[in-house]
Design a protein around this nucleic acid. Structure first.
Lengths: 226, 226
DNA sequence: ATGGCAAAAATTGCATACAGTTTGCCTCAG
DNA sequence: CTGAGGCAAACTGTATGCAATTTTTGCCAT
C-alpha cells in the first residue's frame, strides 16, 4: 500500500501541502458546511494518508482561519458568515487604501514606471474583453501596489487577506462592463500615484475595492445559504 | 517518565501551545540567532517531549512567521530585520488608527461606556506606578478598541499583528514616564471616540502606537545584534 | 593541496501504536 | 416516562518506529 501511494503522489509537493489545498477546497466549494466536524480519521481514510499529516494540515488551516480548533475536540469548519465576508472586504479596502497611499509617497521612479506600464498594457485587453488575461494583469497590478508601499508586513497582511478572499472573487469580471470599470478605477489610482498624491490614491483604491466587494457580494450570497 | 511529565505539565495549556511560546521566546530573546537551524530532535530532547508536538509547534511558528520551513530541511529562525520590525509597527499604527476611527463611528453606547470606564479605572494605576496592572488594563483597552470597530477581520489582523509584536513591546512601560504618557494618549483617543469623531480618533491612535513604536525600538535594537 | 564524488550519519516526513479525554448511549432509579 | 449516572465506543494528543532525503565526512583523483 505504501509503495502504491508513493507512486500516486509522486513529488507533487509535500503531502501536507496537498492536504491543505484539498481540505480548503472542500470547505470553499461547500462540500463541507460551516460548523461541520472535520475528524482526523475520516480525512485520513479519505485521502489515504495517516493522521499525522492530516493533523498538520488542520493546524495550517486553523492558522489561515478556515477551521477552528479546541483542545480534545474535532476541528470544525469556520462559519464564514455574510457579515464576516463583508468585514474581510472592508479590511481589504482599508489595506489597499493604505498601500495605494504609501505607494504614492514611497514608490521609486522605476516602480512608478512599471505600474504605469502594467496598467497601460491592460488597456487593449479591456477592448478585446479578454477576461482571463485581464485577470492576470489585474493581479499583477495590485501586487505592485502592495509592494510599492515598501512595508513588508502590510504587504503580508494584504496578500493574506486577498488570498483568503480569492474564492469569493472568482467570478467578479463576469459582470458585464466590470472590465472597463475596473480599468477606469485603476486609472484614477495610477494617476494619483504618479502625482504622488497619497490621499487621493488611498481614496481611489478604497473605492475600487469597495466596488469589487459589492460586485462579488452578489455571487457570494448566492451559494452562501442553502 | 511519562507519568512524571504529565504531572509537570498539568493543565498548563496544551503541550504544543507551551512549545510555541517556549520556542518563540528562544527566538525573541536571541538565544537562537536568525538563520540558525531548529532541529526537531534537539528541541524534543530539550523540552522532554517527542518530535510530534515539536513539529506542530514549528508549523505554528511558521504560520506566525517566526521561522521558515522548506521540505526535508530544518526549520530556520526567520531573520527579523530592524526594517521588518519597523514595518510591523507601521502596520500596527495603521490598523489601530482604522480601529479607532471605526470605533468612533460604530461603537454602541454600552461599548463607549465600557471603554471610558476601563480607561478611567486605569488612572489610579498610573499614580501608583503599577506597571504590571496597567499593562493588563492597557491590553484590555486596546482589545476594546479592536472589537469596537465591529469588523471581525480587521480585529483579527490587528490582534495577530499585536501578538507578533508582543515580544518586542515587553519593556515598553519601563521607560520612565511612559505610563503617564500612555494614559494621556489614551485620553485623547477616548475623548475623540466619545465625540464620535472618527478622524480625530484615528489620528490619535496612530500617533499613540507610533510613540510606543519608537519607545520599543530602543529595546529591540539592543539585543538585536550580537 | 584542492575539488569532486561516494558512502555513512543525521534528520525529516509519514505511519502506526498507545494513553487520555470526550461523547453518546444505555440502564436504572425516581 | 424522565432524568441522572455510568460505561463503552470514538476520537484526540503524544510517542515511537521506519523509509526517504539531506548533509557531512572521508577518500581519491587531478
Amino acid at each position: 500500500m505504501k509503495l502504491a501511494r508513493k507512486r500516486d503522489i509522486i513529488r507533487s509537493g509535500t503531502t501536507v501541502e496537498q492536504l491543505v489545498r484539498a481540505i480548503a477546497d472542500m470547505i470553499i466549494t461547500g462540500e463541507m458546511r460551516p460548523g461541520e466536524r472535520l475528524d482526523e480519521i475520516s480525512l485520513a481514510n479519505r485521502f489515504e494518508v495517516s493522521r499525522t499529516p492530516v493533523r498538520e494540515a488542520l493546524g495550517q488551516l486553523c492558522a489561515i482561519g478556515l477551521v477552528g480548533r479546541q483542545p480534545n475536540k474535532s476541528a470544525i469548519v469556520t462559519n464564514v458568515t455574510q457579515q464576516h465576508l463583508a468585514s474581510m472586504f472592508e479590511a481589504m479596502a482599508e489595506l489597499e487604501g493604505i498601500c495605494a497611499r504609501l505607494s504614492a509617497e514611497r514608490m521609486t521612479v522605476d516602480e512608478r514606471r512599471a505600474l504605469e506600464a502594467e496598467h497601460k498594457a491592460s488597456a487593449r485587453l479591456v477592448h478585446r474583453g479578454a477576461e482571463e488575461e485581464y485577470e492576470a494583469h489585474n493581479t499583477e497590478f495590485h501586487t505592485r501596489l502592495y509592494r510599492g508601499a515598501h512595508s513588508n508586513h502590510i504587504t503580508d497582511l494584504v496578500s493574506q487577506t486577498r488570498a483568503r478572499l480569492a474564492p469569493f472573487r472568482r467570478a467578479q469580471f463576469r459582470i458585464s462592463g466590470r472590465l472597463a470599470k475596473s480599468y477606469d478605477e485603476h486609472d484614477v489610482i495610477v494617476t494619483a500615484i504618479l502625482r504622488a498624491d497619497g490621499a487621493a490614491a488611498g481614496q481611489a483604491a478604497y473605492a475600487h475595492v469597495s466596488f469589487v466587494s459589492s460586485a462579488s457580494a452578489v455571487f457570494a450570497s448566492e451559494p452562501g445559504k442553502n
